[in-house]
């Protein structure tokens, strides 16, 4: 939970910034889709995957990713074929996953899964994490046109020959990917903050979509960098400090928004 003194905090700040930037960038579209809490709920799905990964000694990121991918495909399939409201579906999967996760996770590992375990990140894992974060931002940039049209005018999207179902699946899988990276940092309980808070702050300071996407990413990066730095200096839990930093940015953006009016 706390950063061990043996690890280079600058490397953690670098990796953390990439992850938080990617989470915020991809998550900003989630907020526009009015699915903010889906991102949060999905992080709980990561728990059983992480538990299994830890118990068989592989990277928890891989475990989280596998669990998320399975559940996302399940949710997507049910959303397309049944009449149940997507949020309710996410609710079903997320509580079931959390229950399963609690059964599978050893008590000693539970805190780590719930609140993150940044200090256990090794160098190779860090580099892979950075690479995946960059790829996630690139894929989101490629998709965002289509995602936005399908949010504001679903029929227009279909008439423009956008495969809305496929775009939704691709986007959800992207969310799954960034959530698996993020849970390693802040844990499943605080993951929602990385996806939601920077986007909501960005919305306070800009009225363009380009500004919104980039401010989201920048706020994510600043939250991670400042949060991890403060956590290292004061020997405090990383996840909590990152989330609280993003809250400070949110309050500042709120004040800016209201003072400017």
């Amino acid at each position: 939970m706390n950063i061990s003194t043996s690890f280079n905090p600058w490397f953690l700040i670098l990796v953390g910034s990439f992850v938080a930037g990617a989470c915020a960038y991809v998550g900003s579209l989630m907020v526009l889709k009015r699915m903010s809490l889906v991102g949060d709920a999905l992080s709980h799905v990561a728990l059983p995957g992480m538990a299994i990964a830890i118990s068989i000694g592989i990277s928890p990121i891989l475990g989280a990713f596998t669990a998320l991918t399975i559940v996302i495909i399940g949710i997507w399939y049910l959303e397309e074929t049944s009449d149940t409201y997507p949020e309710a579906l996410v609710g079903i999967f997320f509580t079931a996953s959390l229950a399963l996760g609690l059964l599978l996770t050893k008590e000693s590992d539970l805190l780590e899964a719930l609140f993150g375990s940044l200090d256990k990140l090794d160098f190779a894992e860090g580099l892979i994490t950075i690479a995946i974060s960059v790829a996630a931002i690139m894929i989101a940039t490629f998709l965002y046109n289509k995602v936005i049209i399908s949010i504001i005018a679903p029929e227009l999207a279909k008439v423009s020959r956008i495969n809305v179902k496929l775009v939704n699946l691709a986007y959800l899988l992207l969310v799954g990917t960034i959530v698996s990276l993020g849970v390693r940092f802040v844990g499943t309980l605080l993951m929602g903050a990385l996806v939601i808070v920077p986007a909501v702050s960005a919305r306070n300071v800009t009225k363009t979509i380009t500004g919104y996407l980039w401010f989201s990413a920048i706020f994510g990066v600043v939250s991670a960098a400042a949060g991890i730095f403060a956590a290292a200096k004061m020997s405090l839990p990383v996840g909590a400090m990152v989330v609280l930093t993003s809250m400070v940015i949110y309050v500042l953006s709120y004040l800016y928004h209201h003072l400017r009016k």
């Binding site: 526009l32 227009l156 979509i209 380009t210």
Partner: peptide, 26 residues
């Protein structure tokens, strides 16, 4: 080639998308 003009858009009051950006999506 068919152009379709929908009745409304699903946008919240502060949806961050300018007219220029909207047109540039197309």
């Amino acid at each position: 080639k068919i152009g379709y003009v929908p009745q409304k858009l699903f946008i919240d009051a502060d949806f961050p998308l300018t007219t220029r950006e909207f047109l540039r999506l197309k």
